[in-house]
């Protein structure tokens, strides 16, 4: 349904540019949940904004690549054409529901706005549709809530409104950028269950962006692990969690704290995430990688195929039993 190929988005910064997204490719099939996983600054949100066509340009600049959605390249579309896709076919849910909702309009007005842009229906019908949209996302007493302003709602309810807005026109693809990061765990569980529910009912595709591997394990069909603007590993959820091939993925999984690891030292990746304006040469992860070879410092490794659509961008073959790498 959606196919992103070799997408490059750079940002102009003082005396140069920062490679926020540097050759990213991924695909989303009908009804599938794809997770983009990575730490802050790895380019996962920029990829999402570019797909939606809402990347601020400048400072951002799309250097190359294609984004095919149902056979059309979104990057070549005119703004009016894009307008028809956005909301109607692809919709987005943002992380911060408070800043993404307009404080001076009721939530009913805001949901109706999304419908009004794409469909010509009368006011009474519209109201019915908005109330139904709120019902679908499990909002308690939607008939009253529809006249509320965003500040009258709690964080979880606001996120439900955001999802209702995104779903109001029955999109084929929803992009959710860290939708539960600002929420408490019990509310996060509600929202995750809601996403799963809605997806089963509507067979929509979901591109879910997060840094939380627990959430990923719960919902992902396919996982793409991003680091410094590139995809380091991709594969089915079980392959990534049970048989991670890239040292970065392994390190991320090993550094998760849990009750069972109590008393032993947590694995930690030395150093910190590189500044996108100065990504290291060769493999961007090599300065922090304990398996790095001489060639990693100069050559960017290609994708190695591990079968079953599982790829990793690392030349080192990891021996699980010995806990060592080899060639």
């Amino acid at each position: 349904m959606l196919s992103v190929k070799d997408l490059k988005v750079y940002f102009q910064v003082d005396g140069g540019f920062s490679r926020a997204v540097d050759g990213v490719s991924f695909e989303i099939q009908d009804g599938e949940t794809v997770c983009l996983v990575g730490e802050s600054g790895c380019g996962k949100s920029v990829s999402a904004l570019t797909i939606m066509g809402i990347l601020p340009q400048p400072p951002g600049k799309i250097i190359g690549g294609t984004i095919f959605f149902k056979g059309q390249d979104l990057l070549l579309m005119k703004e009016e054409e894009m307008q028809k896709v956005r909301g109607n076919h692809i919709a987005m849910v943002f992380q911060e529901p408070m800043t993404s909702l307009n404080p001076v309009f009721t939530i009913g007005d805001q949901i109706e706005e999304a419908i009004r842009i794409h469909e010509r229906i009368d006011e009474a019908e519209m109201r019915k549709r908005s109330i139904q949209a709120l019902k679908d996302v499990g909002m308690p007493s939607p008939e009253q809530r529809i006249n509320d302003y965003p500040h009258q709602l709690s964080g979880g309810q606001r996120q439900r409104v955001m999802i209702a807005m995104a779903l109001a026109c029955n999109p084929d693809l929803v992009i959710a950028d860290e939708p539960t990061t600002a929420l408490d765990v019990t509310v996060q569980a509600q929202i995750l269950n809601l996403f799963k529910d809605l997806q089963q009912k509507r067979r929509m595709s979901l591109l879910y962006i997060t840094h939380d591997l627990g959430v990923v394990a719960k919902i992902a069909d396919q996982i793409y692990v991003m680091y410094a603007g590139i995809i380091l590993e991709k594969g089915a959820a079980r392959d990534i969690f049970y048989n991670p091939c890239h040292p970065y993925t392994r390190a991320l999984l090993a550094s998760l704290p849990s009750r069972s690891k109590r008393g032993s030292k947590l694995y930690s990746i030395p150093g910190s995430v590189p500044d996108p304006a100065h990504t290291p040469k060769g493999c961007p992860f090599h300065p922090r990688c304990s398996f790095a070879l001489e060639s990693c410092t100069s050559q960017f490794p290609g994708m190695s195929d591990w079968g079953n659509g599982h790829f990793s961008r690392c030349p080192v073959i990891y021996d699980k039993e010995a806990g060592k790498g080899g060639n």
């Binding site: 765990v185 019990t186 569980a189 627990g214 999984l253």
Partner: peptide, 22 residues
């Protein structure tokens, strides 16, 4: 609270037990 934590295990696809309300 404990059952609302998503465990990093893709085989565990049980629905998270979500408390009602906030």
């Amino acid at each position: 609270l404990l059952s609302a934590i998503p465990e990093p295990d893709p085989d565990d696809r049980r629905e998270l037990k979500a408390l009602k309300g906030e």
